[in-house]
Design a protein around this nucleic acid. Structure first.
Length: 326
DNA sequence: GGAATTTGACCCCC
DNA sequence: GGGGGTCAAATTCC
């Protein structure tokens, strides 16, 4: 593994390295798990990892996604220096998953209260939790099912903040939440702040394959993600070969437009037989791609995060160079 | 009728 | 004290 990074602050550099090492270890773990599943075909073992029948694989992929999302969020800061929350001591708070809320008077009252009315206010507010933000010009479907639970007018903000929790908060005790706030109307710009990682296993769909070859003059952002859901309605035209029904269920290749951000990457195994199509679908600045097994190389950008059988994504537009070889 | 959203109330924590 | 995060009843949607 080789990492070159020249312009990230040391603390973020260390976080990038730590997260990538973690991601690599998880990927190895996933690889071992997949290899051990010899009764399944490659495509079965890869893509059923998102089905309810293979929760171990799914869990590993979820962890890997989280690891690389964090890494990319750190890089996102570097690329979008206007996100001041990423400053040290800012929104990158230390994880306190223990939920260190001291028992409040209300909570104590709750223990004896029987009525729902009296339970009001007994929530545990996260004192600290891991958070990361991303800005985008569109409201991005990140593959998880969210339930809106609140909206607040924020002081000195032009637009209200919307609060979402994971749909599986109660049935699977998933603590992931996010806040979405429009920060600019024309052109539209949304800021999404995520709190905590998903521990649920019920992706309402897997992340999408989205090739972003930005249609603007700014070629700085390239987005790859992978989707296995077949009948999702989307504003993005599908590209790729005519697929069998099964193939349709494991991947679709879509194109999207997400200028000036790249933190919404997903790490998933690429669809084995479709790499040529994917490559063909890559319009400038993306290029290249192997014709087997799904090793894709996106070489046109300064930043390439690549693993055997997996490509995390690539970006450019700032001077750091990160190369990962596994 | 169940799920999702809206919205006023509650209260933690700076 | 007040901003902001969460709860939960009411309302809307499918």
């Amino acid at each position: 593994m080789e990492i070159q990074s020249s312009h990230l602050p040391n603390n973020r550099k260390k976080r990038v390295i730590d997260e990538l090492i973690r991601g690599r270890e998880l990927a190895y773990e996933l690889q071992i798990a997949l290899n051990s599943n010899k009764s399944s075909s490659f495509s079965d073992s890869i893509f059923t990892s998102f089905s309810t029948t293979n929760r171990n694989h799914q869990d590993l992929v979820t962890k890997i996604l989280g690891s690389f999302s964090e890494t990319l969020s750190i890089l996102d800061y570097a690329a979008n220096n206007n996100i001041d929350e990423f400053s040290v001591g800012g929104s990158w708070k230390s994880e306190d998953s223990s939920g260190s809320c001291k028992p409040s008077a209300a909570a104590k009252a709750t223990a004896t209260a029987a009525t729902s009315k009296e339970r009001r206010g007994c929530y545990k507010r996260r004192k600290t939790s891991e958070t990361w933000t991303q800005n985008s010009s569109t409201l991005i479907d990140d593959g998880y099912a969210w339930r809106k639970y609140g909206q607040k007018v924020i002081l000195n903000a032009d637009y209200p903040r919307n609060y979402f929790r994971c749909t599986h908060k109660f049935d699977q005790e998933c603590q992931a939440t996010k806040q979405v706030q429009m920060i600019q109307e024309n052109p539209p710009l949304y800021r999404t702040t995520y709190h905590g990682h998903h521990t649920c296993r019920n992706l309402h769909k897997a992340p999408q394959i989205i090739l972003d070859s930005t249609t603007s003059n700014d070629s700085s952002s390239v987005l790859l993600s992978f989707n296995h859901q077949s009948n999702e309605t989307t504003a993005f035209p599908l590209v790729g070969k005519q697929e069998t029904k099964d193939e349709e269920e494991v991947h679709q290749i879509q194109r999207g437009f997400f200028p000036n951000q790249f933190s919404d990457y997903f790490l998933l195994p690429p669809p084995p037989p479709a790499s040529a199509d994917l490559t063909g679908a890559m319009s400038s600045p993306l290029s290249a791609g192997s014709d087997h097994g799904g090793v894709y190389s996106c070489t046109a950008s300064t930043h390439t995060l690549e693993m055997d059988h997996m490509v995390v994504g690539s970006v450019d537009d700032f001077d750091d160079v990160l190369q990962f070889e596994f």
